[in-house]
Amino acid sequence: MHELSIAQHIVELVRQHVNPADAKNVAAIRLKVGAVAGVAADSLEFSFHAITADTPLKNTRLEIEHIPFRIECLKCGVVSENETGIVVCDTCGSPDAKVLSGAELDMTEIEILEAVQAAT
């Protein structure tokens, strides 16, 4: 259940980027999670909501973009995707391939609702 520890890192990154006064207005946190990052999106969302339940981030959404595992064959040049993390070209069967994506675990953006502040 390392998603709990990852959720703590997410909260820490938000703290670094968002003014404490704006924390309650954070509407969404956008993440990229690769197919072979070894992170279960459901568990990550569950963990995030569990640790933020009594904090200003309690209404914040986690928006997780799934990034496929993508390889480029160095023999025939074909780019292929799979969800299994297997480094074998779909077309020619060569294991000589470059991994292009799929291991990501990145925070890309934080969305803040300013309307709440404006209304008060």
Partner: peptide, 15 residues
């Protein structure tokens, strides 16, 4: 609404 661009690895602190 405003967007803060982060573009950081989630486990950056550990890295």
């Amino acid at each position: 609404m405003s967007i803060i661009t982060v573009e950081r690895k989630v486990l950056e602190k550990n890295d």
